[in-house]
Computed example of a mutant assay.
Amino acid sequence: MQLLPLRLTPGADLRPALADALRAQGWDSAFVVAGIGSLSEARLRYAGEPAEAVLAGPLEILSLAGSLGADGAHLHMAVADASGRVVGGHVGLLGNLIRTTAEILLAPLPDWQLTRAYDGRTGFKELVVRPR
């Protein structure tokens, strides 16, 4: 299995940077296997909430995982503040700004295509997995 370790640098915005890394490799589908690092600000949407919460940093990324596809990403993250309080949720579209580093491991899926389609049962665009 091919894996891509990468480092995001200070000031990078997490989701757009991951999308850029995917495109730079010529991939359209991958999973984020693991991620750690730090953020100067985070935007997370908590379970069942319609709006994103803005969290002021500094924050430590304790866990990052999810799927990346040509038409979107689904990422979850747990972060800790300077007092060690931990919160987690769905990673917002913009505003998860790298403070010092983010170390991430991507696993491409060359035999599969990940897309998103509206699911009337959930009310969200959900993962659709198709073999190539």
Rank of each mutant, 00 (worst) to 15 (best):
G35C: 11
T9H: 13
V79K: 07
A102L: 06
A80H: 10
A78T: 09
L62E: 11
G120D: 08
G26M: 10
A47V: 08
W112H: 04
P58Y: 14
L14W: 13
F31Y: 13
L106D: 12
E126N: 08
D81G: 04
P58Q: 09
L93G: 03
N96F: 11
R43G: 02
V79T: 08
P110M: 06
T101C: 05
V91G: 01
Q2D: 04
G84F: 11
L109N: 01
A30L: 06
R43L: 03
Q25F: 12
L8I: 02
L3S: 11
L105N: 08
G88E: 04
R121H: 10
L44T: 01
A65K: 15
L97T: 11
G26P: 01
S67C: 10
L109H: 09
P50S: 12
I61L: 12
P131T: 11
L93Y: 13
M77V: 04
R45K: 06
L97M: 12
A117Y: 11
A21T: 11
R116A: 07
L14H: 09
G88M: 04
A12T: 02
T122P: 00
R7T: 07
L114P: 00
A117R: 15
Q113K: 14
A34Q: 15
L8G: 03
V86M: 08
M1N: 04
D81H: 09
V129R: 13
L14N: 03
V128C: 08
L44R: 01
G84Q: 06
G120L: 08
M77G: 01
P131G: 04
Y118M: 14
V129S: 03
A117W: 14
T122G: 03
L97D: 03
P10F: 14
I104Y: 14
L8A: 02
V79R: 07
G37F: 09
E103T: 13
A117P: 00
A102R: 06
Q25G: 05
A78E: 10
E41L: 13
G66P: 03
E60S: 13
D119W: 14
T122S: 15
A42P: 00
A70Q: 13
P110G: 02
Q113C: 09
E41K: 15
L114V: 10
A34V: 06
S40H: 10
G48Q: 09
D13S: 07
H76I: 08
A117C: 06
G84T: 06
A12K: 05
F124Y: 15
